[in-house]
Design a protein around this nucleic acid. Sequence first.
DNA 1: ATAACGGCTCAAGTATACTTGAGGGCAAGG
DNA 2: CCTTGCCCTCAAGTATACTTGAGCCGTTAT
Lengths: 148, 148
Amino acid sequence: MKKYTIGEIAAKYHVSVPTLRYYDDAGLLPFVKRNANGQRVFTDDDLGYLEVIDCLKRSAIPLRDIRTFMEWCVQGDATLPQRYQFMIDQEQALEQRIQVLQANLAFLRWKKWYYAHANEAGTEQLFFLPNTTQVDPKWRAQYLADHD
Amino acid sequence: MKKYTIGEIAAKYHVSVPTLRYYDDAGLLPFVKRNANGQRVFTDDDLGYLEVIDCLKRSAIPLRDIRTFMEWCVQGDATLPQRYQFMIDQEQALEQRIQVLQANLAFLRWKKWYYAHANEAGTEQLFFLPNTTQVDPKWRAQYLADHD
DNA sequence: ATAACGGCTCAAGTATACTTGAGGGCAAGG
DNA sequence: CCTTGCCCTCAAGTATACTTGAGCCGTTAT
């Protein structure tokens, strides 16, 4: 089975070597072995684990949660229920976070529209209610009417 | 125009009072005024700004970027081009981040399917290539065939 | 009038996730 | 043989975003 050094794995997953060592210290890599010189040795078997870690990290899951999951992984079949539940929970959490970001995106697009028009006019004044800097709701209504 | 204390604003936006003060110190609230006793006073005019901050924070935009934008806001019409460009940039960045999260979600769903089946069987063994802990690609293919 | 309630500042502490630096080992190439 | 390159550990430093604590002020309720 092909073996990989920490440097090769770092390049493959676009992280620094110290970061990988930090992850190992933090218990995220309980599957890595060492050679006679004490150097970390990664194998093809480990790549699947590393992909999971990569996915969870890109999803901004805290390291301690990733650690918990990886520990279950090396404990074998006895932890399959926990790992299944973990995936159910993470799926739900991620769905919710995506929904929040979709709402934020909609808000940013309305603001973009607002600034596109303000920029063209050279002033925000036309949007404001008299003697305030509050945007007249009619503009928001018009934006929504135009973008449906 | 209605006025609000820092405590009222904190309750409205689900943040702590010290957090709001920290934001003010960090330059995120250049629009807040003070009363004769040095207390922060928020007005209806400010609520629009606070919504923007809330949106950017929920999108995990760094505070220094939010600060830059809020400073442009109080500088008036001269900064409309920068603010328009800011919205364009943030829209694009957020679209990309949502795409990454969608991909991560797809991965988590595959893993959920995997653990659902492993859990039912009581073991992961049936998924592995002989003498490895690598998942036989045929299972991934089957999952993709079943979920399209 | 005094205690509670909220507001204030400033300094220090906490958590997370790394990064950087010092000092050292092992193996391959000139 | 010794320099280069990659590996190692351990300790300390950095950045971000808050939180906590000490000590104080002004308004309001008892």
